[in-house]
């Protein structure tokens, strides 16, 4: 085996240009597909976090008295499907806003009076998380006295869910296309290497080389191309990811979102995919070559 590996490496070094083309192609494909996947992974993380915390903001009519407010709260408590109710006074809301928009505090400081309404923040039990349930609950809440407006992000969640599915489908389609194109290019470079070696291969055959003796180094060559291509692709992606991560670190932490890279397992799977690509490339070109 070490002998075959040595021959494969020697072959790669002797056909540096061809191999570089294949490796760069594989690296680019891995980079593009992985970048897509990474974006999707993080977007889904955020989406899930957001979805989990579905809450309904219940804004009260301006000038609602404490008694009226307690009454509304009591009525809210009788509605089933609601998990928690938290009162956010308009002063609390303003404080919160000032905290979030620290850079624009001067703007808020100049306000003569607080324009925000008092509100209840209502979270739902998990079973009430379906679009229909939320719609129904918010309509019931809207009918309560002293309630001026009910707000929830469900429309957006639905729209995003549809978008995500589309995105996923496009990703799979694109992945399949890149995979095939890369196999094709890898097959062609191996074919060129085979062509430049045809004399040698013919002689080896005549003096009694087995099929495996001739083929295995080319399979290894494909595997090595796939392996190095994947590593390069992932390496570039990771570098870019880290750079973007530090760039937006502050914004991201202010929004309470964290982004993450692929796990080791996923990286290994991607590398495996790259190696499969190289192997398939060798397989197809050898199949054709042996036929000739």
């Amino acid at each position: 085996m070490t002998f075959y590996t040595q021959r494969a490496i020697k072959d790669i070094l002797e056909n540096r240009f061809l191999n570089a083309v294949t490796i760069v192609t594989i690296a680019l494909s891995v980079l593009i597909i992985s970048a897509f996947g990474l974006f999707f992974l993080n977007a889904q993380d955020m989406f899930n976090a957001w979805k989990k915390g579905v809450r309904i903001m219940v804004y009260l009519v301006p000038g609602t008295s404490d008694a009226q407010r307690l009454d509304t709260r009591y009525r809210l408590q009788t509605i089933s499907g609601i998990q928690s109710i938290r009162f956010i006074s308009k002063d609390d809301a303003l404080e919160l806003m000032k905290e979030r928009m620290r850079r624009q505090t001067s703007l808020l400081d100049n306000l003569r009076e607080n324009p925000l309404p008092d509100a209840f923040e209502v979270t739902l039990v998990t079973e009430s998380n379906s679009p229909e349930k939320i719609e129904f609950l918010s309509q019931r809440i809207e009918g309560l006295p002293s309630v001026s407006e009910v707000e929830y992000g469900q429309q957006w969640i639905e729209r995003f869910a549809n978008f995500f599915n589309l995105f996923k489908l496009a990703g799979y389609g694109m992945g399949a296309m890149f995979f095939m194109a890369t196999v094709f290019i890898a097959a062609n470079t191996i074919r060129l290497v085979l062509y430049s070696r045809r004399e040698e291969i013919h002689i080896m055959r005549l003096v009694g080389a087995t099929d495996n003796f001739i083929k295995v180094p080319f399979y290894l060559e494909g595997l090595i191309q796939g392996f190095s291509g994947s590593l390069i692709g992932l390496g570039i992606l990771y570098t870019a990811f880290s750079a973007i991560g530090t760039q937006f670190e502050q914004t991201l932490s202010a929004e309470m979102v964290s982004i993450r890279f692929f796990s080791m397992g996923v990286c290994a799977a991607i590398t495996g995919g790259g190696m499969t690509t190289g192997l398939l490339g060798s397989f197809f070109s050898l199949k054709q070559f042996v036929k000739e």
Binding site: F3, E200, I203, M204, V207, G208, A209, T210, F213
Partner: peptide, 8 residues
């Protein structure tokens, strides 16, 4: 060497 290697 190639001939001998090819012969295993």
């Amino acid at each position: 060497a190639l001939v001998l290697e090819a012969r295993g």
